[in-house]
Simulated assay, not measured.
Amino acid sequence: MSTFKPAADEVAALGHTRIALGVEYKGSRYSGWQRQASGVPSVQLALERALSKVAASPISVVCAGRTDAGVHACGQVVHFDTQAVRPDKAWVMGTNAELPHDISVTWMRQMPADFHARFKATARRYRYVIYNDPIRPAHLGEEVTWNHRPLDVARMAKAAEPLLGTHDFSAFRASQCQAKSPVKQLHHLRVTQHGQMIVIDVRANAFLHHMVRNLAGVLMAIGSGDKPVEWARQVLEGRDRKTGGVTAHPYGLYLVQVEYPAPFELPGRYLGPHFLTGFERLMG
């Protein structure tokens, strides 16, 4: 399958249309977002195959943020260029008809040539969902992280406070992270409880590889009482990943929103995951 992507100033000249899509998926069956040379199942590969059938020509997509194996998305954004002319409905309903049950296109929008799903994004938002109960859940086993030890949400929320703002997040960065800089700006980091569910809701200008899962691991260690509240700040200031504890499981992690400048006018959609939508009024 072709991976050719014309530059923005070439799109119109080549007679291409740039299209953006909203995509949601359950990541449990996939090796992650990114298409791999080995051909193992990935979200990108499944989406490109479905779109190529609708377009009757090869389609290659660019996403806002690559997710790891087992990680889910409710608000992934992608773009692609095509010469195919199809009704708007075809790019949504037609593509969904070709997709497996655990991937869905939620909206489409024809975009100007200078739109880029990754590089034009101004912020990204993730939610990490923990099921906190002594008994392992029979449902949502691959969609939440189960923690059997009682977690103190107030301690977790207090520990999160020093992490807000612009910092060097090297201690929360995976060793294989390819980001040019470990400095990121955390706009909010909220910990809330809804029955047996604890939700870590985090928004930033960008994220490092495994950053949210490492944040979740630190906060859960504090919530369980294994570490003091001050430990989150100490890990941050130490800038050493080896001091940052265990990387939390991918199951409970969701990319829920990608933000862009207002002139692009991308469609809005409720924040997920679906089983948490009843808490939207409380979570904001």
Score class of each variant (00 low, 15 high):
Asp114Val: 08
Ile200Asp: 00
His187Asp: 13
Tyr126Gln: 06
Val92Gln: 11
Val153Tyr: 00
Ala121Phe: 01
Met156Ala: 00
Val199Glu: 06
Gly165Leu: 00
Arg118Lys: 13
Ala97Ser: 14
Met156Cys: 02
Glu143Thr: 08
Phe172Asn: 01
Thr95Gly: 01
His167Trp: 01
Trp146Ser: 02
Trp146Met: 07
Pro150Gln: 08
Tyr126Ile: 04
Thr166Ala: 04
Cys177Glu: 02
Val199Ile: 15
Gln178Glu: 10
Val202Leu: 06
Ile103Pro: 08
Asp114Trp: 08
Leu151Met: 10
Ala171Asn: 01
Ile135Val: 12
Arg149Ala: 14
Thr106Val: 11
Arg118Ser: 09
Glu98Gly: 09
Gln176Tyr: 14
Met108Lys: 13
Pro112Glu: 07
His148Glu: 11
Cys177Lys: 04
Ala179Pro: 06
Glu98Val: 07
Pro100Met: 11
Ala159Gln: 01
Asp102Val: 01
Cys177Tyr: 01
Leu189Glu: 02
Trp91Leu: 06
Arg149Cys: 13
Arg118Tyr: 02
Tyr131Phe: 15
Lys89Gln: 14
His101Glu: 15
Asp201Tyr: 01
Asp133Tyr: 11
Asp114Tyr: 08
Leu186Glu: 09
Thr145Ile: 09
Ile198Cys: 07
Ala123Ser: 10
His194Pro: 03
Gln110Tyr: 12
Ala159Gly: 05
Trp91Thr: 04
Arg136Met: 06
